[in-house]
Amino acid sequence: MIDRGAATAPVQAPDQGAGRARTERTTATKGSRATTRYRGAVGKKAVMAVTGALMIGFLVLHMIGNLKVFAGRDSFNDYAAWLRTVGEPMLPPSGFLWIQRIGLLVILALHITAAVQLTVQAKRARPVKYHVKRRVQQSYASRTMRWGGVIIAAFVVYHILDLTVGVANPAGTAADPYTRLVADFQRWYLVVAYAVPLLLLGLHLRHGVWSAAQSLGRGGTARERPIKLFATGFAVVLVAGFLLAPVGVLVGVVK
């Protein structure tokens, strides 16, 4: 960190100068290319972008899978069963699911680690707050990334206990997936419990999709608007797609 008066302190003595030290640092960085890159904030952001994109991929498939509830109880339960048998006998039972679970856990862990590290770095960079701070153009979405992310994570934990494990489900662990799902969303407060995090997820992605493009160097003045439009459209479609099932149950289209 820079101490007081650095502006006036001689930058370095010619022989043991900080300049020399800095040159050494940049030429003698150890470690592989990937780990060196990760040390910088830009590298962390790239990790967030890639992990975010992978999670988005999962969510797209998950959302489409969920739409099977409209095809009826059997179709949905078969789908859930299929998820557990796919890949057999090459994979053990539920092998695919476990691979996916481990993969998602690692991805989420990376995503959260980078998020936490960046947050810490940001807090250190602004130890003294402004008395008055006005926002000029930042969006609500961009400001809610951190808390939004935490709430989404909490939701996922609850969600797994609810629909995968079943302990948090009104229909209990014994029920089949379709029953659990319907049991949930016949209760308006559980619909709300799903809808709120989903909206937050929508916000997270509205900013996240554009942000990921920017983080990976895919931005550009001319593309800023199209990418942002796409991000908004994508977030809306995804959230709406997810909401179809709960709303379908609530209004009685799915029983």
Partner: peptide, 28 residues
């Protein structure tokens, strides 16, 4: 000790020379 960018965009809004966010994408 500067923070990392999370693409919030306040910087370009107050920049007296209107440096665009595209530069940050290019840097990344």
């Amino acid at each position: 000790g500067f923070g990392g960018c999370t693409n919030i965009g306040e910087c370009t809004a107050v920049c007296p020379k209107g440096i665009p966010l595209a530069t940050i994408a290019r840097m990344n």
